[in-house]
């Protein structure tokens, strides 16, 4: 089963535990600037939105990479960067329409979400379930159900 990170901004409080968990997993330190997931705030904190790689099936980053440094984890569906093969050209950064693959000046390579090998630390660190790791084929079901309930009650 391909799973993905399902993000529900309405539940996010902006605590950044996800950023710390991500950077701790990948860098061994708490460093939000190196987190592969980022939380953005709008209108004085009215909304906080976690944002990360959606693991496109036909990934722009992967297609753009001239050294074939980006590969697919067939089991998880995650796109993985090989630090050995990455030359830091940033073609993938330019290609990604979402900005979710980022150049790391410290290493000279690019970083992106890799699902932590199937146990994404951002999701387990989230105290409000704003980030969950769920079946990619059933992402809309929760919202469909909520909308159906509204319709049943004579709402939208």
């Amino acid at each position: 089963m391909h799973r993905m990170l399902h993000i529900e901004p309405s539940l996010c409080t902006g605590c950044l535990q996800c950023e710390m968990a991500c950077s701790f997993e990948h860098e061994g330190e708490f460093n939000p600037a190196r987190s592969r997931i980022r939380v953005f705030e709008f209108e004085h904190g009215r909304t906080s939105v976690p944002y990360t790689c959606t693991q496109c099936v036909e990934a722009w980053c992967m297609k753009a990479c001239p050294t074939a440094a980006i590969s697919v984890d067939m089991e998880l569906g995650a796109k993985l960067v090989s630090p050995e093969a990455c030359v830091g050209c940033k073609a993938c950064v330019a290609a990604c329409p979402f900005g979710t693959i980022e150049f790391n000046p410290a290493s000279g390579k690019v970083d992106k979400c890799d699902f932590c090998g199937g146990d994404p630390k951002c999701a387990s660190a989230c105290p409000t379930d704003a980030i969950t790791y769920v079946d990619a084929g059933a992402l809309g079901v929760g919202r469909m159900q909520a909308s159906a309930q509204q319709a049943a009650q004579g709402g939208a």
Binding site: S10, T13, G14, C15, L16, G45, R46, T128
Partner: peptide
Amino acid sequence: LLTNKACFGCTIACGRIAH
């Protein structure tokens, strides 16, 4: 009240966002 809000690292989130 619109929502509650956390400071950095806080899993309580007692802050209030209002209008």
